[in-house]
């Protein structure tokens, strides 16, 4: 009984205290997701910082790992917007978007889903995925393209792969990279291992690089890894789609071998920002919607900030604020 009384007393005093502390705040509010990879975090922080500085928004940010869960949260109105979705990896975009993706006036992709998520516009970042090996290995073995890989496969082998080489593959099956399929079509005698998370793949690659061991890694650029470690791409064949393009996952592929995906490399990823349709249809958010249509952060700028954040370990907010202060000519045009 003593316990319950103490607790109730504590609770009552808390209520009193909060009464004295509470204050109302009436700013325009948005709720953004913070991505779980640094590039995405920076892109979003740029958008958030401009919304707060120039349009007087108060943006609440929540760390939310990207994936279908995030798309559902946006559709459900739990989160108002998120940044830098990569079309090659997103699962939900074809189901939930219903708009054209425009980059510098050109239509680079079109969607015909149910429109439960609003395509706010391109983020400006163009992503590219490839297989990468460290420069020291490329130079030591004389590997120039993917065609040279088979000769040196034994050096890339591990205990699990036996005689075949090991590719630290696309970490998540849901991303639809089809690594093993690609390797088989191209005749590269490697085994693609899915490690489950980007962190796992990068951790193994980083450790191998520190020990100067040869390894092959699937990765996308821009990525902080390239700022810290010297990697070269194996130059997979240029991206082509199978014609007629009947590839669906459910119907398994209509295999066209080396003539089309996944026998080729990835397409360029014109990344985009996306948000809740109801929120951005409100008149009070018209300015924000306009801003997102114009926003176009360049790869080179993101890469510079990536180095500051990930290698020099500076806080994201500070780095982005500094970039905004020093480069008004780059982002002022987005405000018109």
């Amino acid at each position: 009984m003593k316990l319950t009384k103490t607790i109730s007393a504590l609770f009552l005093s808390m209520v009193l205290l909060i009464g004295s502390l509470g204050q109302a705040n009436a700013a325009k509010r948005l709720h953004a997701a913070i991505a779980d990879w640094t590039g995405g975090i920076i892109t979003c922080e740029v958008a958030v910082a401009i919304l707060e500085r120039e349009y007087g928004y108060k943006v609440k940010q929540t760390v939310f790992p990207s994936g279908t869960g995030l798309w559902e949260a946006i559709a459900a109105g739990e989160i108002d917007f998120a940044c830098e979705s990569w079309p090659s990896y997103a699962e939900a975009d074809s189901v939930m978007l219903n708009e054209d993706l425009i980059y510098e006036g050109k239509v680079v992709g079109s969607y015909s889903g149910d429109g439960s998520v609003d395509l706010l516009g391109t983020s400006g970042i163009i992503g590219l995925s490839d297989y990468w090996i460290p420069r020291y290995a490329a130079e030591e073995f004389g590997i120039k393209t993917w065609k040279d890989l088979n000769k040196h496969k034994a050096k890339f082998a591990t205990i699990e792969t036996g005689k075949r080489g090991r590719l630290i593959g696309c970490p998540v099956a849901g991303w639809n990279c089809h690594d093993q399929k690609r390797l088989d079509i191209l005749g590269i005698d490697f085994q693609a291992d899915e490690l489950g998370t980007e962190a796992a793949a990068i951790a193994e690659a980083k450790a191998a690089y520190m020990r100067k061991e040869p390894f092959m890694l699937y990765l996308w650029s821009p990525h902080w890894f390239f700022g810290e470690f010297d990697m070269v791409g194996v130059q997979l064949p240029d991206h082509k789609v199978c014609d007629p393009d009947t590839f669906t996952e459910a119907g398994n592929w209509k295999d066209c071998g080396k003539k089309g995906w996944p026998g080729t490399g990835w397409a360029k990823d014109y990344t985009m920002n996306y948000g809740n349709p109801a929120v951005f249809a409100k008149s009070e958010n018209a300015e924000a919607k306009k801003f997102f249509e114009n926003m176009s952060l360049q790869n080179i700028d993101q890469a510079k900030m990536l180095v500051e954040v990930d290698i020099k370990k500076r806080p994201v907010k500070e780095v982005v604020a500094e970039w905004l202060d020093n480069n008004p000519d780059k982002w002022k045009p987005w405000l018109k």
Binding site: T158, I159, E160, I168, D193, L195, G196, A199, A200, A201, A203, E204, K206, A207, A208
Partner: peptide
């Protein structure tokens, strides 16, 4: 663990 043993079932 990943840095010492690499990713995978081990």
């Amino acid at each position: 663990v990943l840095m010492f043993f690499g990713g995978g079932i081990v």
